[in-house]
C-alpha cells in the first residue's frame, strides 16, 4: 500500500499544538497568581511626573523659606557635633532629582536625605550650602552631586556613632 505524503508544516503545527496544549491553562493560572504580586510590585513604580512635581514643589518651598531665614554661618561642610538649633531644624530641604541633590544655599539641614535610589535616611545634618562643591544649575537651587552627598553622609555616619536615626527605610 502506498503511503501518503503529508506537508511537514501541517505536521509541525499539529505537533506544536500538542506540545503547548497545557499552555492556556498555565497562562490562566499565572494571571490569577500574579495579579496580587503585581499590585505590590507596581506600587513601587513612581511615575516621573510625580517625581518632577515633588522636586519643583520642594525647590519652591525651600526658596520661599530661604528668603525668610537669615543666612547660615559659613561653617564646615558638615557640623555634626553641635546641637540642632531651632533655626537649623527649620526649612531644610534636600530633594532628589535623578543623580543630583538640590540644596537651598542658606539653610542648614535636618531632613530626609536620599542616599540611594532605594534608600532614604532621616538624619540631623547641619550643612552650609555655600561651602558645598556646587555645580550650580540656577541661582536659587545650587546643586550637589549625589556622589559627594553620599561621601559626606558616610563621613558623617562614621563620626557620629551615637546618631539618632529618625528613620532608615527602604521604599
Amino acid at each position: 500500500m502506498t503511503k501518503n505524503n503529508i506537508p511537514m508544516n501541517d505536521l509541525l503545527r499539529e505537533a506544536l499544538q500538542k506540545k503547548y496544549a497545557q499552555e492556556p491553562r498555565l497562562a490562566e493560572d499565572f494571571a490569577k497568581r500574579v495579579s496580587q504580586k503585581m499590585a505590590e510590585k507596581t506600587k513601587r513604580v513612581v511615575p516621573l511626573w510625580v517625581k518632577y512635581a515633588s522636586v519643583a514643589a520642594a525647590v519652591v518651598v525651600a526658596f520661599m523659606l530661604g528668603r525668610w531665614m537669615p543666612a547660615a554661618d559659613h561653617e564646615e561642610t558638615l557640623q555634626t557635633n553641635r546641637p540642632n538649633t531651632a533655626e537649623e531644624k527649620m526649612a531644610a530641604k534636600i530633594v532628589h532629582k535623578t543623580d543630583t541633590v538640590y540644596l537651598d544655599r542658606q539653610i542648614a539641614v535636618e531632613k530626609t536625605v536620599v542616599v540611594h535610589d532605594t534608600v532614604r535616611v532621616n538624619i540631623p545634618v547641619r550643612v552650609a550650602a555655600n561651602d558645598m562643591p556646587i555645580a550650580s544649575s540656577s541661582d536659587d537651587a545650587p546643586t550637589l552631586q549625589m556622589a559627594d552627598m553620599e561621601r559626606m553622609m558616610n563621613e558623617f555616619v562614621e563620626s557620629r556613632r551615637d546618631i539618632h536615626y529618625t528613620s532608615l527605610e527602604r521604599y
Binding site: A31, A39, V46
Partner: peptide
Amino acid sequence: RGRPGSHEAVMERYGQEVFALVVKLVPDV
C-alpha cells in the same frame, strides 16, 4: 501618568500572552 490601577489593567490584558511566550523559552513555570 501612574494612574492607580493602570498597571494591573495592563497585566490583566496582556499577562497571559506574555507569559505564554516566556514559558515556551523558560519551561520552569
